[in-house]
Design a protein around this nucleic acid. Structure first.
Lengths: 234, 234
DNA sequence: AAGACCGTGTCGACGCGTTGTGACGGATTC
DNA sequence: GAATCCGTCACAACGCGTCGACACGGTCTT
């Protein structure tokens, strides 16, 4: 109840301590270790909701741990399903991670912004909460998650990365009103809403791109609160 | 809510006085003591909604008090469930493990920012209160909290941010009379009611928007006190 | 390697809904 | 009947969202 359980696998002690502290503050139950072998055991015994896995570990690489988790040893079904976020070695470009990492749910390059980490953790946890459908659909709008394709009335719409992320965030719960802080956090990884017009700008662009003829708009503002995606046909 | 009841257990008299004053201003019902033994009795007799527990006490440590609460003596079921926030000694680093092992719900290191304390108290109380229902309903009135949609007899009503906040505040406990100061504090964040007609104005607007035909009104004034939402069908 | 191109974040002008206030009259209490 | 308190209205100021313009930086082309 007191937040999701996170297993932090991280060799560098200061980083580990920092993460334990911060994540606990943010309401997570934190469990940690510095070695890959222990990590595998802990995943089985403690059943965390999420694993935060550093690429560099003393006994084996994080990539290997991830693979082992995904293989799933007999009688260890949990392993195969637990979401994993990998963290690259300091200074390593994120592309290398992409190449090596197989089966992890997200990656992050060190040094990372803590806020961004939390945002990604939340995103991954939300996704893992239920088997996510392959496509989201609202009225004439359909989003294919695998190919990141968006269509309005069958017509393909080209969206930028942020526009897409924003749309998916909204579409994951149509009609629900998302506060601006929420969206900023989920899509941009910001902690607080400064005097930024970024979100408004992207909302505006997204709205225009989705506008199809004289339909009522998809992206709707809720005055003084945030935005929502309109699902009602009328 | 008439404010939740908080038990402040704190040895240092100035700190205790300050907390009593501030928390009362912020709408909490405050009860306080300086010793661990009395604290245990008070939890049982007064049944506070939250315990604010200093680590340093004259007769026993706060950690011990927390443990005793969690053990739960026979016939003292309340103890086990009441949320506890521990406050560490001045300058002491927070010993999270020690505290969480004893079953406290959150932590704070002295010296702390008062605002942070309140934020954490609210967070813990919210958690303890359990998940909020997705919708509130009174007679023909229904409020969908996620989409911030308000309907009267199925008909959608457009409300502004403040009107909505006011309605939700009232609807969280229908029939209960909310004093004007309470509403101003909950909805506007003011601490005291000056000579403001703001609340009356909004109540009026809200009343009109909710008026549906010749039904008895939803928003009712209680002379000299405040407002309430009428739930009785007649 | 230089240039074109796209994505992104910021700024500012503009317009509109919202919000707080004071006035006035009616209601309520003592 | 006097003193409050309340309901409602109109209005002005403000806050907020919109959207075009622009600058910066990264990527792809040639």
């Amino acid at each position: 109840m007191a937040g999701e359980a996170v297993l932090v696998v991280e060799q560098e002690e200061p980083v580990r301590a920092f993460l334990e502290q911060q994540l606990t503050d943010d309401g997570f139950e934190v469990l940690s270790t510095d070695a890959g072998g222990k990590a595998l055991e802990l995943v089985e015994s403690a059943r965390p909701d999420l694993v935060l896995l550093d690429a560099v570990l003393p006994d084996s690489s994080g990539f290997e741990v991830c693979s082992r988790l995904r293989e799933g040893e007999p009688g260890r079904a949990w392993n195969r399903d637990v979401p994993v976020i990998m963290v690259s070695a300091r200074g390593e470009p994120i592309d290398r991670l992409r190449g090596f990492a197989r089966g992890c749910d997200d990656y992050l390059a060190k040094p990372f912004l803590y806020e961004e980490l939390v945002a990604r953790m939340r995103a991954v946890l939300r996704r893992a909460a239920g088997p996510r459908p392959a496509t989201l659909a609202v009225r004439d709008l359909s989003i294919d998650l695998a190919s990141r394709t968006v269509r309005v009335a069958g017509e393909r719409v080209q969206l930028s990365a942020k526009e897409y992320a924003l749309l998916v965030a909204l579409a994951e719960d149509p009609e629900r009103v998302f506060r601006k802080e929420e969206l900023l956090r989920d899509v941009w990884g910001f902690r607080s809403l400064g005097r930024t017009r970024t979100l408004d700008s992207h909302a505006s662009r997204l709205r225009r791109k989705l506008a199809n003829g004289s339909e009522p708009t998809y992206v709707l503002n809720v005055w003084g609160v945030g935005y929502r995606l309109v699902a009602s046909a009328a």
